[in-house]
Amino acid sequence: MEIIGQIFLLIGSFSLMTAAVGLLRMPDVYNRVQTGTKASTLGAIMSFIGLAFMTYENWGEVNWVGRFLVLVIFILITNPVSSHVLMRAAYAMKIPLSKLTVVDKLKEDINNKVLEEPKDE
């Protein structure tokens, strides 16, 4: 039980670290949001699951599992929302996409008047 927890914790913190590396290396905001805030979601969830396994001796007396579960569900619900809002804000600010970008359908559709620019509702 303890070993499983430790493995999960290691994988989780490694995943968090790769997210940080992505945060430093990526060329533009959009890719940074991609790697930075979302690879860290799985990292945080894995770490919490691992910690919940590691505390199995005290499951009967103290509420470890419930709190960890609340944290996991909470991160799963809030993280996509906050990163989506950030990305939309970046697009509304017209921060340019990096030179590596191959296609931008949203811009084509805005230019073709299929839909208006994303702005505040």
Partner: peptide, 11 residues
């Protein structure tokens, strides 16, 4: 940009 800062803070 400011969005970069917010992303760093979120992480």
């Amino acid at each position: 940009s400011i969005v970069d800062r917010v992303v760093g803070f979120d992480s």
